[in-house]
Design a binder for these strands. Structure first.
Length: 435
RNA sequence: GGAGGGAUGACAGAGCGGACGAAUGUACCGGUCUUGAAAACCGGCGUGGGCUUGCCCACCGUGGGUUCAAAUCCCACUCCCUCCGCCA
């Protein structure tokens, strides 16, 4: 949620910033107008309430003086005012709800450094990395045996069974088996270990209350993309960011606690409602996938470094796995609702011949903290909202795809990078079924 | 799932219709005393919001209700504790 006080104080600044991501001036004017009305009504209701309270005190006083006639008269006046107050308060509540609702739909102000742009085509590529680059290789090269899509490799080697996954839960719910299942497990363990002990490992619930989903901005705006368990008032989490952001919801943290850094692997559930039929082959787009998330609550001063650290770690994993990737600086038109600045990491999938997003590293400023009401005590004793940053490190389904393609051998087997050996019982080779 | 008990400021813990944003203790901050520290004593010490910046309003688990007036009474819900049942 943006800062209403800032919108009130410097509307032109906010408008200019949000215009970069397509929010019209009229939208914000409507919010400002609601805010004006809200405060007018607030004063009216509070004035009435103050009178009722004062009269009530006088009633009590009169009763003690045994002046029942005066007490009754005062009570009568107070009752009348009380009715008016009730009416004003009801109107006030309605207006406040409308204001809040509109405010919840206003996206975050983009960071000045975020590049301008309308959509994903305007994202700015900052750099690429591939094996051998440091030794002077001009570009990654792939042989014909690496140009096989992971869904074919998965079927050939018996490590991915999408048909059975679909039989159990519908399409886009993958089922890994044998070495494929073990590889997914290994990737999560591998990444979590690398983030300890700087990041505390968390294993959060897989479902979250509506209020929890609100804090990160996933609700109300993206309700169609979330799995809802209506009977219990719960939602399946689309990312560990949801529970992690709310861990300190409503709290005031001590400044010396910050930054609080956490990592968690969870299943992530996404309905992908707006993407029906697109990129549905193999593991390109799924309703459920595992992802290790990195997250930090920090002071505004710590935020940039915390953001950079998560990006470094995500890149470090990709480099350790020897996968080709690129870093994108998301343009204002492609930023998520809550983000001020986001870097996406895309891994190259030689078999599918496409770049696949495997990480999104975002700085939210105080946008999420305002919704979640997470603050800290500053050195001068006052309170301030924390900043939140997070990023995937990494989303495993697509990494799984890039790995089996990149490391496919001439004979059809897959020879995985040695860094994974400790997590694979020492066996890095996925053999062909005939061998 | 059944029965009972509970939820109050950083913590502990009073209050159970009116002068209660809330006793008291601890912790914390400032001061006096002291060579210094401790002790003792004095003072301060929740969070938001509104505007005429001095006042007003809200908040005692959450949401409703009763009343001139609710931390206090009523209803519903959530969570915690104890016991019983069931269960990986």
């Amino acid at each position: 949620m943006i800062d209403l006080a800032q919108l009130r104080r410097e509307p032109e600044v906010v408008k200019a910033a949000l215009a970069r991501r397509g929010v019209t001036s009229a939208t914000l004017d409507a919010v400002i107008e609601l805010d004006v009305q809200h405060r007018q009504l607030l004063q009216e209701a509070e004035g009435l309430r103050a009178q009722v309270k004062d009269l009530s005190r006088q009633v009590g006083e009169a009763r003690r003086q045994k002046d029942d006639a005066a007490a009754s008269a005062l009570a009568e006046t107070s009752r009348t005012l009380g009715d008016q107050e009730r009416e004003a308060s009801a109107a006030l509540d309605e207006l406040a709800a409308t204001l809040r609702e509109q405010l919840l739909f206003v996206p975050n102000l983009p960071a000045p450094e975020a590049p301008d742009g309308a959509d994903e085509h305007d994202n700015v590529e900052l750099r690429r990395w591939w094996v051998g680059m440091d030794e002077g290789a001009a570009q990654p090269t792939y042989e014909a045996h690496q140009r096989v899509a992971h869904w074919d490799i998965g079927t050939d080697l018996g490590i991915l069974d999408l048909e059975t996954g679909a039989k159990l839960a519908g399409s886009m719910f993958p089922l890994y088996r044998g070495f494929g299942a073990r590889l997914i497990r290994a990737l999560g363990f591998f990444a979590l270990d690398r983030h300890l002990p700087e990041y505390e490992e968390i294993r959060p619930p897989s479902f979250a209350l509506t209020e929890t989903m609100m804090s990160t901005g996933h609700l109300p705006k993206s309700a169609d993309d979330m799995y809802e368990i209506g009977r219990d008032g719960l939602w399946a989490i689309p990312t560990a960011e949801v529970p992690l952001t709310s861990m300190h919801r409503g709290e005031i943290l001590a400044e010396d606690q910050l930054p609080i850094r956490m990592t968690a692997q969870t299943a992530c559930f996404r309905r992908e409602a707006g993407a029906a039929g697109r990129d549905t082959r193999g593991l390109l787009r799924l309703h459920e996938f595992d992802k290790v998330e990195l997250f930090a609550y920090c002071t505004p001063e710590q935020a940039l470094e915390a953001h950079a650290d998560i990006l470094r770690r995500a890149e470090g994993l990709l480099q350790a796995l020897g996968l080709t990737y690129r870093v994108l600086d998301l343009c204002t038109g492609d930023l998520g609702t809550s983000a001020a600045r986001t870097f996406d990491l895309e891994v190259f999938s030689p078999g599918v011949d496409r770049w696949l997003e495997v990480s999104s590293v975002s700085w939210f400023r105080d946008f999420q903290a305002r919704r979640a009401n997470v603050r800290y005590r500053t050195s001068d004793g006052s309170t301030a909202l924390v900043h939140t940053v997070n990023g995937s490190a990494l989303a495993w389904a697509r990494i799984w795809a890039a790995l089996v393609e990149t490391y496919r051998q001439v004979d059809g087997s897959v020879e995985l990078p040695a860094v994974l050996a400790p997590y694979l019982g020492g066996q890095t080779r996925i053999p062909t079924r005939s061998s």
